[in-house]
Computed example of a mutant assay.
Amino acid sequence: MVMKHTCNAFGLLSASLLIAVSPLFSTTVEAKDWKSVTIATEGSYEPWNLTRSDGQLDGFEPQLIRNICARIKIECKFVTQDFDGLIPGLRAGKFDVLMDALSITPERQKVIAFSRPYASTPAAFVSVDSKILPKPVGQGALVKLTGDNKTDKQTVDELRKYLKGKTIGIQSGTIYTGFVYDNFKDIATIRAYKTAPEHDLDLVAGRIDVAFDDATYFVSALAKADNKSLGFTGPKIGGSIWGPGEGLGFRTADSDLKAKFDAGIAAALADGTVKSLSEKWFKVDVAP
């Protein structure tokens, strides 16, 4: 209010003093030492993150983030949150960091900030009948998409030919959700689920024909006895369509916190920690 009231000398002097000291005052109020942070994850997206029988979080990301937190000397506390509530909860101040195989996309970057990527993985279709999509050329063949409709048209049209009339399961709110709706909603039925294991259950039960998700998630899911009837169908799909990779999510105002975790991720990539943990949990190096 002082700066708006400039009709007398006292007001002018007060405004001038406030302007002079405001940078120092602002720094004092807003600076955070970040001795501890709350990290939100789904806790059910194995092997990225999972909840053990004793209630403790485990998996590639929890083990990696504990390593990073120790490096940057920050106490990290964990909470679990449904995937579609992660970004709204972060922006509402319920937690400080997101960690859930969160792909870095331009749309998400409009509302939150991302760390440098710590992983980069392809997606894949899985079904009971592995013949729904043509067998890929080469072991685990990868096709790369750019996200540009003209460039990707030939590959997408080939997928559409085989998926016409099918029911596709997808976890809601992921980077893969938009891809499936944008390219197949006019020729297939799409069913969205809150969690990835839910589309696996419906796949085994025959309520959907295929599911689409991260290939590393499916490697773990297919190893479970309940999913022994499932298998990959068609090629794995990677490329720039999924962005630069998976990163941690932050509020845009918390650039100092992001910088700390960026430094920790860089160190974990440089000394082989990311490679070692990804080979442990995914059986392949997913370092970007």
Rank of each mutant, 00 (worst) to 15 (best):
S229W: 12
D226P: 02
L230A: 06
K260G: 04
D214K: 06
K224T: 10
I241G: 03
K258G: 01
V210K: 10
A205K: 15
D254K: 08
F250H: 08
F261C: 02
A259Q: 07
Y193D: 11
S240Y: 06
D209Y: 12
A211M: 03
T195V: 09
T216C: 08
K194W: 11
P197Y: 03
P197H: 10
S229I: 09
P197G: 03
F232D: 03
I237C: 11
I237V: 14
A196G: 07
D254M: 01
G249R: 03
V210A: 12
T195Q: 13
L201P: 03
D213N: 13
A253H: 09
G249A: 10
H199G: 02
F250G: 01
D214N: 15
P244Y: 03
E246R: 02
A253W: 08
K258E: 08
V219P: 03
D200A: 12
D202L: 06
H199F: 12
L257K: 07
Y217F: 09
F250V: 07
E246W: 00
G234W: 02
L230Q: 15
H199C: 10
G239P: 01
W242R: 06
L203P: 07
K194N: 15
P244T: 09
I237P: 04
T216P: 02
A196N: 13
T195C: 09
A263P: 00
T233I: 06
K236L: 10
T195F: 14
D262P: 01
G206V: 01
G243T: 00
G243K: 00
G238D: 07
K236D: 07
P197K: 02
F218W: 11
A253G: 05
G245K: 05
W242Q: 10
T195G: 08
S220G: 03
V210W: 12
F261I: 00
G247F: 00
D209P: 08
E198K: 14
G249W: 05
T252W: 06
T252L: 09
K236G: 07
D254H: 05
K194M: 15
L203K: 12
L230P: 12
S229E: 15
D256Q: 13
E198S: 15
L203I: 07
G239W: 00
K224I: 09
F250P: 06
A259G: 10
A223D: 15
V219R: 15
R207F: 12
A215E: 08
I241C: 02
W242A: 00
L222T: 10
L230N: 14
L257D: 06
L201H: 11
A215Y: 03
W242I: 12
I208L: 12
G249C: 04
G264C: 00
D262F: 00
D254T: 04
G206M: 05
E198D: 14
A211G: 09
